[in-house]
């Protein structure tokens, strides 16, 4: 158990240190998110009346795209000679490597979210500091990253790499995006709690089921990692 935890922490720490050195993932995610919001601003004409109904949608699409980018990049750098290769040679539980990678990815996405949400609030004059909404963002990100990390580990080993990940990931994460958008709208617009709870439940169930399966199946994905 202690060994397991140490492996997880090693992997997360390695990602953080690597990121602190070159800031590759975070900057590209951040710039990309801002661009997405900018594009939405023009495409949907996000004035004060219109944006009330689409805020949650825009936010989640932004996080989804940014998340794909981050997850993909972090796995690709592993393949280009990161230290996952080395860790795979050591007899540690593979799922610990998965948990570590997923936590690292989740951390990066959360950092982006923490930066983007206030910017969005300022730009479009919406109050996003609703505790419930932040909870939805956290829970939604967990499920999304859990599946994304596993699928990215597969897609970086494929020939089509970067194109493949969104194609694999988006249809699988629809059951988390719909409730996440709905629950976000619920909190931002102050809908009744019971209505929001039904959506939150779906997110939680998704998180639990898919994290568990991803943990179990990860070892089959990295079996002949090279």
């Amino acid at each position: 158990m202690r060994n397991y935890l140490r492996t997880v922490i090693t992997v997360v720490w390695k990602d953080i240190v690597g990121e602190a050195r070159n800031k590759e993932i975070l900057t590209s995610m951040l710039v990309f998110s801002l661009l997405v919001i900018l594009i939405f601003n023009f495409a949907l004409d996000l004035d004060v009346q219109a944006q009330e109904s689409v805020t949650a949608g825009v936010i989640w699409v932004t996080f989804t795209f940014a998340g794909t980018l981050g997850v993909n990049r972090s796995m690709a750098s592993e393949r280009e000679g990161g230290c996952l290769d080395g860790l795979l040679l050591v007899p540690v539980d593979r799922s610990a490597l998965y948990v570590g990678k997923a936590l690292g990815n989740l951390l990066f996405l959360l950092v982006i979210e923490v930066i983007i949400l206030p910017i969005y609030s300022v730009l479009f004059n919406v109050n996003m500091l609703v505790p419930g909404f932040l909870l939805v963002v956290l829970l939604g990100s967990i499920g999304y990253i859990a599946v994304g990390t596993l699928l990215a580990a597969m897609s970086v080993q494929a020939r089509t790499r970067d194109i493949l990940l969104p194609i694999l990931l988006f249809p699988l994460t629809i059951p988390i995006l719909i409730p996440a958008v709905k629950a976000s709208i619920g909190y931002l617009e102050g809908y009744p709690g019971s209505w929001i709870m039904t959506w939150l439940n779906v997110i939680i169930v998704y998180d639990l089921i898919f994290t568990a399966i991803a943990v179990m199946l990860f070892e089959y994905v990295v079996e002949e990692w090279s």
């Binding site: 699928l151 249809p171 699988l172 629809i174 059951p175 959506w199 998704y206 898919f210 399966i213 089959y220």
Partner: peptide, 17 residues
């Protein structure tokens, strides 16, 4: 195999949501 398992399990949740 991994993707087929994931895909099939996501179907009921997609439907419910």
């Amino acid at each position: 195999a991994v993707y087929a398992i994931f895909g099939f399990l996501s179907v009921p949740l997609t439907f419910v949501s």
